[in-house]
Design a protein around this nucleic acid. Structure first.
Lengths: 217, 217
DNA sequence: GTCTATAAAAAGATAGAC
DNA sequence: GTCTATCTTTTTATAGAC
């Protein structure tokens, strides 16, 4: 899976929106509509109606539609990274059974993607709009936090002799491709629904293939 | 990689556009602009200007913007599947060295994706617009031709004892994920440029991991 | 079949009062 | 800070002549 999750560069004092009673309503409404309809199909009028505020309030707070959009994506991806981080910490901190623990980790992440519309839809939206908002691509260029977390865990497993890891980053890419990547492709990043059983099967098979390829000889 | 490539259901007599001198100019201009700017950001005025025809001609031929869009995507994905099929036929017909032949196959496909803007951009566009055009999702639901081609080749390798294949479709998904899937994720489906060397490295490593996981014991 | 001209609606952004 | 009302531009689609 790609690393759409980065929340550095947060300057707390300089933050637009989100403050005040109406701030939460605006960003929440914008998030719902942008994730559902995309950037161009979502009008500021619709966001104002959904949030129960006037359009002028939105422009006063955010300046223009583009800034509102980027602000919402930044907030959302920050939340998503936090969720991923917590799941990773719970499963990858100390591993006893490699295959079982990696499978449970990947399954938890996968279900957190599939079950909440706010997750996989966010990735789809960022990918769709990336060419038209260079700021999104700059975010993407940062040290890749999701791959980073996984690769550090795999490096530890390599040091412990539980896996044969020569390039931890490459191994993390392969594990991601065989699990989250498969799901993203199969669902068209959320456009097509898949059953929980399918997700479970894909994740289990993906981790099994990964472990077969990286087991110590 | 996902199977965005299907060209069945072609009813040659009933085809809109593409016929006549202006027909080619319209579909070609529409393809360029839709692939570059997406659906909503591309106006029919811009397509008419790019094609050198009047807007009325477009509406007479295609009815509305949506039909023009779907027609262009259908034509483009059909071309893309043909290209993929030819590459697969050239590399997978008879395989002697599994790792080398699979690597060359994946590399050829990958470069045909990366080098031509019409390829990977098409996948990105279809994925971006899929939720808003159910017809695109129905196309996607068809027997998956790309996975099908790969899985049949892998099944032959399994029968020949060169790989240990129990589920050919699953193996094909894993090979795709480790090669094309990795590239698509890394490039954000064409939004980010990668060097030829990076593509080569990813494909080589992906196939190596695949072969390690599926080699006969 | 092809063109010029136009209708009709939507959307981003702003003026000015409270 | 918030609201109603408005401006301006863009866009899809059509009318009607040649």
């Amino acid at each position: 899976m790609t690393d759409v999750l980065s929340d550095r560069d947060e300057r707390p004092g300089r933050r637009a929106g989100g403050t005040g009673p109406k701030g939460e309503a605006i960003s929440s409404a914008a998030r719902r509509l942008f994730l559902r309809d995309g950037y161009e199909r979502t009008s500021v009028d619709a966001i104002a109606a959904e949030a129960g505020v006037s359009k002028r309030t939105i422009y006063n707070r955010y300046g223009d539609k583009e800034n509102l959009f980027l602000s919402v994506l930044k907030e959302s991806s920050s939340t998503m990274l936090t969720v991923f981080d917590r799941i990773a910490e719970a499963h990858l901190a100390d591993i006893t059974d490699v295959q079982q623990d990696l499978t449970e980790f990947a399954r938890d992440v996968a279900f957190s993607l599939i079950r909440s519309p706010e997750r996989i839809e966010l990735i789809r939206l960022m990918m769709s709009e990336a060419p038209y908002f260079p700021a999104l691509l700059r975010e993407q260029m940062r040290p890749q936090t999701m791959t980073g977390i996984i690769s550090r865990a795999l490096a530890r497993l390599g040091d412990a002799g539980l896996l044969r890891i020569t390039d931890p980053t490459e191994a993390a890419d392969h594990l991601s491709a065989l699990t989250f990547g498969q799901i993203n492709n199969k669902t068209w990043f959320g456009a097509i629904q898949v059953s929980d059983a399918d997700v479970d099967r894909m994740v289990t098979a993906g981790v099994a293939t990964f472990v077969r390829a990286y087991r110590p000889s």
